[in-house]
């Protein structure tokens, strides 16, 4: 299971907040994921993740961590998994698709559905990973 990072808001229980935004655990239909007749399309789209928190989009990375972050300090860098950032399944129904390497380095990827499934099922699969995520800002 690959090691992935994502900048998200923390819920009261310490796990990431669920939601359909760029800063919560979830996806925005039509933006993060294409939806056709209620089905999440399997293509290059999905929920954004990175192989390290320093590769997270700077405006979604907490400023307090330095390295040019401009994100709200209420955001946290969460991690899940522990294997190499390579194409593989993260858990049932979700697979990591890394972007092409840039100058030999992969900085971004998406968690997409393993197959075309209803968008709500895709969201539920993502939500099911909630307790796999823990804050790691080291």
């Amino acid at each position: 299971m690959p090691l992935v990072y994502r900048g998200m808001r923390r819920d009261a229980d310490g796990f990431p907040m669920l939601g359909e935004t760029a800063k919560t655990l979830g996806v925005r239909a039509g933006f993060d994921i294409d939806v056709l007749q209620g089905q999440a399309v399997v293509n290059h789209k999905g929920m954004s993740v990175n192989p390290h928190w320093r590769h997270i989009h700077p405006f979604f990375r907490p400023k307090r961590l330095g390295f040019g972050g401009q994100g709200s300090n209420d955001l946290h860098c969460f991690r899940a998994g522990e294997g190499p950032f390579a194409a593989s399944g993260l858990c049932e129904g979700l697979e990591l698709v890394p972007d092409a390497p840039e100058n030999g380095v992969i900085r971004h990827g998406v968690l997409r559905p393993s197959q075309a499934i209803p968008i709500e099922k895709y969201r539920a699969n993502i939500a099911a990973t909630r307790e796999m995520w823990q804050i790691d800002e080291a």
Binding site: H57, P58, F59, F60, F67, G69, G71
Partner: peptide, 23 residues
């Protein structure tokens, strides 16, 4: 912050580095 999401995806690697350094 929200307004930067799509433009960021359109940047070259060098431009992204410039943005992070300027930030």
């Amino acid at each position: 912050r929200d307004s930067t999401e799509e433009p960021w995806d359109e940047l070259t690697i060098a431009e992204r580095r410039h943005i992070v350094e300027l930030s």
